[in-house]
Design a binder for these strands. Structure first.
Length: 1163
RNA sequence: GCUCAAGUGGCGGAAUUGGUAGACGCGCUGGAUUCAAAAUCCAGUUCUUUCGGGAGUGUGGGUUCGAUUCCCACCUUGAGUACCA
């Protein structure tokens, strides 16, 4: 019987579908295993041969795990919202749902014919309302949450409201917007509902805000940072501009540190982890503020600029370093502190105190937050710091409204009762002071009319600075506070808000000209041109906080307004850009490194560097200097240790039609969530998928898009005039919304009551193996981790990382084929002479086989000789004619394994109409053998190198396709596809088939297997099992080939060998193995049969073919028994005639013998 | 520039607690079968050679009895990222 893959594969695919062979059990005694592929976007082009690579690998693993006794969840679905369907809709008017449905059908057919063991009963589609209902539900959960930095997790917004009612927001340590007003409990209670909503919105994990977004005019939508590549859109490469828009955002920055920490415990590829680490961009350093020495100091507002720092500068008062230190101090109190704490903790004063608490970048010994009283116990701080203590007291009292009282160690130890008495007295005083203070603040706030006077950087403070004269300060972030004595100037971004204020009249013209010049340059220009150094001096000076020296303030476009504070302290000796800037403008470059020459370039090394010329930092190594510098800054009050992240909050609104609608309507301009029970809010029908004429998103075209808050349903827009009907959100969610949680949905895909049942989530936990492309590193894979952590915080999912192990499959490249066309023209000297064109008029198009030339000259000669020979060219003009070669893509389906072109096929190909009558110069000897040249390129329609899996399956079968894709090379590697190679695996399958047949008849012997046969089987079991566990699928395919070759050589047809062999192979080639399994007499599927058990005893050898090497080079081999001792081996080897010949009479210096391995003779 | 990954026959690739380099497959060469072709089977296939051998895993060093494997420097290619302070 012939191996007929078409029939076999069709039958078994039908069998699996009918019997639901691969349906995962809901519950089971078996251990669970969850194998997941990144679900595809169903594009119109269908699958090419590169897409199934990862699916085949995961399918093999899933099937293997079933053989190993696991309850395997191996689902598949579609990420079916997306831009291409929408753009197709815009062009054709066809509803994206329809296109998507058709594309999914194609995908499903293509996937089915490859024989994947997917559990299709759990299919999900992100564009299905039953699915996006829960995407909307998660959005609501995010909206109803805030991030508490004290507990380091997301909490329900109601807990925040409770705090506001009790204490206002001064004590709240949250991740929130940049500029949040500070308010008291009373003020909170007095706010209107709308005011309250506005404030809460600044804390929610998904929030509406006016943000600078990446607007892509060509696509008519906003893009996330990861959707922009090299300053243009990832899709279509359209220009992107910065634009202010009201947008939904996700507060992913709240999770920056946890996203970083989580990488430690997941088994993901290092390059992928690296790029996430990079993207999160944590840098540890310090915020330092420099006072400006300028005659024109502003009032009032100055305090704001000083405290205003961008929101992504997380950390601040509770920066990592300070917190660590506070912790340490708490753990090691002085005796006096311990005594006092015991009293305060015991609530002697009836009020709550905190120990070693952070207030406005200071660690204070004890504090009562409600009464704003700080108690310091001195003794820890030495005399020389008294002055700084005073400054610190002043700042805490004046800036933050705290009262500071001090006791000495002796006072506390000597008379604790009196100390407590004094504290109680102060607490009472504070009560009255605070009341007065609040009134004062209210008044001043009214005056300033909503100018923020505080923010999260100084959250637990009340500013007293309004109305007072305060000097402007420049805040900078630096990762090298240890080099602070090397600061010789400062640079502000040209856009920095202080620039106009501090520039002196003398410098005004120059500065303004510079700002104008930089503004003209686009973001891309500035990025592209890194070499040119430019800048301008503002005429203003700052004061070095340690040395008190005057330092120049410059502006320069190498400082970016969008990063950090938009200002840097320039250390030319330690930073290349600062160095270049200083050199260019002749600014001094002080050297603060010991024994380092900086006359030519900056010294940027950290390790091993010793600081010099830096007062108290001199003589210290980098690490120590860094710590001490921060410590001193904190103590002196002009800086603090801080961790900065590059990760920005993710914009979540898209101006598109084909995406999840938001479950949001607007009442008085404030967003309102629609209750979960009314979900899903289904995407409305629109007539046009384009933005509206007045620039609203496509949903603005919908006529039924208003929320009736009474009837609780979506109604027609005309009802908007009713009081209880409100407009719905017009934006839709981005592509990554649906893909950020789908892996959880598979666990309980049909649940209409819940996101997924608790039982299902607890049983399946998370993905054990996730396979997909590395292009999602900073998109899907980061957002999904973020949502998972959020869902974990809320107790919805049981684990905070969704995928334990991840593998990136490599791309499969196409092997393009080129034919070479001759371009002929008449030359006149060096120029082209058109006047003689009649000479070549009648020459037809000529192609030349690649085998006939190896360079341009040979090509020309071949063509010329041919033309002369065929009398197509007048010999008189031969020297005037010049011929060059032009490569053209030929469709790869027209080329065979030997790179020979099907010339007739080429001529008749629809894209080659103009070459129908072209001449093909082929090799002389063999008729019509025309060779193409090959080149590896990305698979693409325009290169005619796309290979469709349908064709491969039709010709060679799914099993051959599966084996071949695995055989191409290591899974993670990028590798070229060459269809020619498939004949190897195809003939392997035929050979395998033959083992079970005698002529036309199926025949398997029941005879006992021989030792050799068992050895072949067991070494195959061992290798294949190891290979699968290591995801080394390519090597196991060759192992199968070896086994079949060897068994064929032995003419082995014994059941004892051939039956287990099928199980080994079945994950790779499921159809042929099912068929042979059935022929062996089994009634059930091979899919869940136990995996054969390896027995080492079959591999035991008695002799070894020793390699005998001389000076490390193998010269011959010698078969020796394995039980020979070292001495015996040496004796036998030395006596051997070949050894004697090799040595040519020399006496070896040394003989190395590793029994069972090698013999090496030195000398 | 920085970070990461990788360089092995004509091609895809195999071999790493350091121990016979080139498994397996493609392609190629020769042979068998066939009227012929396809298919199939057999033999050969890193280079070089005076047929004894000799050289050889990007380049140059090093460690070692022994290095594709470990260390150092460099070159090349690919991926990601970029005035990130």
């Amino acid at each position: 019987m012939q191996y007929n893959h078409q029939e076999i594969e069709k039958n078994w695919q039908k069998f699996w579908a009918e019997n639901q062979t691969f349906k995962a059990e809901e519950t089971s005694d078996k251990p669970k295993y969850y194998v997941l592929d990144m679900f595809p976007y169903p594009s119109g082009a269908g699958l090419h041969v590169g897409h199934p690579l990862g699916y085949i690998a995961s399918d093999i693993y899933a099937r293997y795990k079933r053989h190993k006794g696991f309850n395997v969840l191996h689902p598949q679905g579609y990420d079916s919202f997306g831009l291409p369907a929408e753009q197709y809709a815009i062009q054709t008017g066809q509803h994206p749902a329809k296109t998507t449905e058709e594309n999914i059908k194609t995908y499903r057919r293509q996937l089915d014919q490859i024989g994947f063991s997917f559990d299709w009963s759990r299919e999900v589609r992100t564009s299905n309302p039953e699915y996006y209902k829960w995407t909307q539900w998660i959005f609501i959960q995010l909206f109803n949450s805030w991030y508490n930095k004290d507990t380091d997790k997301a909490e329900d917004i109601s807990s925040l409201e409770k705090i506001f009612i009790k204490n206002g927001n001064a004590t709240v340590n949250a991740v929130c917007d940049d500029a949040v007003k500070t308010f008291s409990s009373e003020e909170w209670k007095a706010f209107s509902t709308k005011e309250k909503e506005e404030i809460l919105l600044q804390y929610r994990l998904t929030f509406l805000s006016d943000t600078e977004v990446n607007w892509c005019p060509a696509l008519g939508t906003v893009l996330a940072n990861d959707e922009i590549v090299n300053g243009v859109s990832e899709r279509g490469s359209h220009p992107v501009i910065r634009k202010k828009m009201t947008q939904w955002s996700m507060r992913i920055s709240a999770y920056a540190q946890r996203l970083l920490d989580g990488l430690e415990k997941i088994d993901w590829p290092q390059p992928l982890k690296d790029s996430q680490t990079n993207w999160i961009g944590r840098s540890q350093g310090a915020m330092v503020s420099f006072e400006i020495l300028s005659p024109t100091l502003s009032e009032g507002k100055g305090a704001n600029t000083e405290s205003k720092t961008p929101g992504y500068m997380t950390g601040g008062t509770n920066s990592y370093l300070l917190l660590e230190k506070a912790k340490e101090m708490r753990a090691n109190p002085t005796p006096a502190e311990a005594i006092l704490w015991k009293q305060l903790k015991g609530k002697k004063t009836k009020l709550k105190f905190r120990q070693q608490h952070l207030i406005n970048d200071y660690i204070v010994d004890f504090v009562c937050l409600t009464r704003k009283l700080i108690i310091e116990v001195d003794g820890r701080i030495h005399d020389y710091q008294l002055e700084k203590d005073e400054a610190r007291t002043l700042e805490l009292e004046q800036k933050s409204g705290f009262k500071v009282i001090r006791f000495t160690n002796e006072e506390v130890i000597g008379n604790i009762d009196e100390v407590i008495l004094k504290i109680e007295k102060e607490l009472n005083n504070q009560f009255y002071n605070l009341q007065k203070l609040e009134e004062k603040i209210k008044k001043s706030q009214e005056k300033e009319n909503n100018i923020n006077i505080s923010n999260k950087e100084s959250a637990p403070t009340v500013s007293l600075s309004s109305g007072k004269k305060v000097r402007d300060r420049i805040q900078v972030f630096t990762t090298r506070p240890d080099t602070i004595y090397g600061v010789s100037f400062m640079t502000l971004a040209p856009e920095h808000e202080l620039v106009s204020k501090i520039t002196t009249d003398a410098q005004k013209a120059e500065v303004e000209a510079y700002i104008k010049a930089t503004a003209k340059r686009s973001e891309r220009d500035r990025m592209a041109d890194v070499k040119t150094i430019s800048g301008a001096f503002t005429g203003a000076y700052a004061i070095h906080p340690f040395s008190g020296e005057k330092i120049q303030i410059w502006i320069g476009d190498y400082v970016l307004a969008g990063y950090g504070t938009g200002a840097v302290m320039a250390v030319p000796c330690g930073d290349e850009r600062d160095y270049a800037f200083a050199k260019h403008f002749g600014i001094p470059i002080p050297n603060i490194f010991e024994g380092v020459d900086i006359s030519e370039q900056a010294h940027t090394d950290k390790e091993g560097t010793v600081i010099a010329n830096s007062d108290f930092l001199s003589g210290l190594k980098y690490k120590k200097a860094l710590k001490l510098a921060i410590f001193e800054m904190e103590k002196r009050g002009f800086g603090y240790g801080k961790i900065n992240y590059r990760l920005r909050d993710a914009v979540f609104s898209r101006q598109r039609y084909w995406g999840e609608p938001f479950p949001v309507y607007y009442k008085d301009g404030m967003p309102q969530m629609i209750a979960a029970k009314h979900l899903p809010i289904v995407l409305p029908e629109v007539e046009k998928y384009l933005p509206t004429e007045d620039g609203k998103p496509p949903l603005g075209n919908a006529t039924e898009w208003a929320w009736d808050s009474r009837a609780k349903k979506v109604v027609a827009n005309e009802k908007l005039k009713n009081k209880t009907v409100y407009p719905l959100e017009l934006n839709t969610m981005p592509g990554w919304a649906g893909s950020s949680w789908y892996f959880n949905r598979y666990m309980d895909a049909k649940n209409s009551e819940e996101f997924a049942s608790k039982e299902a989530l607890d049983y399946w936990q998370n993905v054990d193996l996730y396979i997909g492309g590395s292009e999602h590193a900073t998109g899907h894979l980061l957002y999904a981790r973020f949502w998972q952590k959020f869902l974990f915080d809320k107790g919805i999912v049981p684990v905070d990382e969704f995928a334990k192990k991840l593998i990136n499959q490599g791309m499969i490249l196409g092997t393009s084929a080129f034919v070479f066309k001759a371009t002929i023209f008449v030359k006149n000297g060096c120029a082209i002479d058109k006047s003689n064109d009649d000479v070549i008029e009648n020459i037809p198009t000529v192609f030349v086989s690649k085998s006939l030339f190896s360079n341009d000259d040979e090509f020309e000669t071949v063509v010329k000789n041919y033309l002369l020979d065929k009398k197509l060219l007048n010999p008189n003009f031969a020297d005037l004619v010049m011929i060059t070669k032009t490569p053209l893509h030929a469709d790869v389906s027209l080329v065979n394994a030997s790179d020979e072109l099907d010339v007739e096929g080429f001529k008749n190909h629809p894209i080659n109409k103009e070459y129908k009558d072209a001449i093909f110069i082929a090799e002389d000897l063999v008729e019509n053998v025309f060779k193409v040249s090959r080149e590896v390129e990305k698979m693409s329609k325009s290169k005619y190198n796309v290979v469709n899996p349908d064709d491969i399956v039709a010709e060679y079968g799914a099993d051959a396709l599966r084996l071949f894709e695995m055989f191409l090379g290591p899974l993670e590697q990028t590798k070229p596809w060459k269809t020619s190679g498939i004949s190897g695996v195809s003939s392997f399958l035929k050979k395998l088939w033959k083992l079970y047949f005698k002529g036309e008849k199926f025949e398997v012997s029941e005879e006992k297997a021989t030792k050799d046969e068992l050895k072949i089987l067991h070494k195959t079991i061992k290798k294949v099992e190891e290979d699968i566990e290591n995801f080394s699928f390519n090597t196991s395919v060759s192992t199968f080939m070896i086994a079949v070759n060897e068994l064929t050589a032995l003419k082995c047809n014994k059941r004892e060998i051939l039956e287990p062999l099928l199980v080994l192979l079945s994950p790779y080639a499921p159809h042929i193995t099912e068929e042979l399994w059935r022929l062996l007499g089994h009634k059930t599927s091979i899919a869940t049969v136990d995996f054969p058990v390896f027995e080492a005893k079959h591999l035991v050898e008695s002799a070894k073919n020793y390699p005998i090497s001389f000076n490390g080079k193998m010269r011959f081999t010698l078969e020796l028994p394995l039980d020979l001792s070292k001495e015996e081996i040496e004796k036998t080897v030395m006596a051997h005639e070949k050894t004697v010949a090799q040595l040519e009479g020399r006496t070896p210096k040394k003989v190395i013998i590793v029994p069972g391995k090698i013999v090496n003779i030195v000398g």
